[in-house]
Amino acid sequence: MNIAIASGKGGTGKTTLSVNLAALFAEERKIVLADLDVEEPNSGLFLQGDPVSEGVRYKYIPEWEESTCTLCGECQKVCNFHAVIQLASQIMIFPELCHSCYTCSELCPTDSLPMIPQRMGMLKHSKDGMIDFVESRLDIGQEQAVPLIAQTIEYLGEHFGENTIKLFDSPPGTACPVIEVIKNADFVILVTEPTPFGFHDLKLAVETVKELKKPAAVVINRYGSGPADEIIEFCHTSDIAVLASIPNNRRIAELYSGGELIYTKVPEVRTELEKIKNHILKQWK
């Protein structure tokens, strides 16, 4: 089962929830946590694992073979991202715009756009106790997170069986990177906070999961720091369960700042996380 932990707004507690939930699951289940926020992975700050494997990841972008090209213009017509532009007798390719979809390359009648590997980042797999942890990190200067996210999810499929729970710590927002994650999830947990910004972005995130037709539930973090009535009301009318409310508590912030697990030291958090775990395990059956 693939579970995405997403939010809309950044900084609501996706990583805190991901790491703690992973550790809780690991007490009784096979679990892998994947940090798919490849532009800014930070789950690794809370896990001290022994390396399992590490490798450079490549994306494939087309390269123009001038000698065989007939300048038919098909490539630029089919590119949704304007990453291929024909200018008189020249074909220009913009790697930063390319989404590695292969369309131009596949549809070129003379095979004049072979796909060439280009380094985009690193994938690291480590093991902290019972938690398998996979982190991908995009190289500085790379603009496309989606191909690395897709490859990381593929890696998880190749290395872990059906009975391993896969937790995805997702990128924030509602744009392509998080859509790539949610697309591959069976269930989405949306973490929000009782602030106007948190509520606003929760609505966008709910719209996104509905568009993608994924079952989802909400976790309210820093519960008690502001009015949550609107959020609860909204979830109710949207037919989305509020699974848990993590209290706004100084002790939690201190543990987080020290890079420590929270649920093992704050019993209320364990109680809330158990609710999420039980909900997921119920779905699993």
Binding site: C79, N80, F81, H82, A83, I85, M92, F94, L97
Partner: peptide, 8 residues
């Protein structure tokens, strides 16, 4: 167009 407005 969400992407590539400049080159287009």
């Amino acid at each position: 167009e969400a992407h590539g407005a400049g080159p287009k």
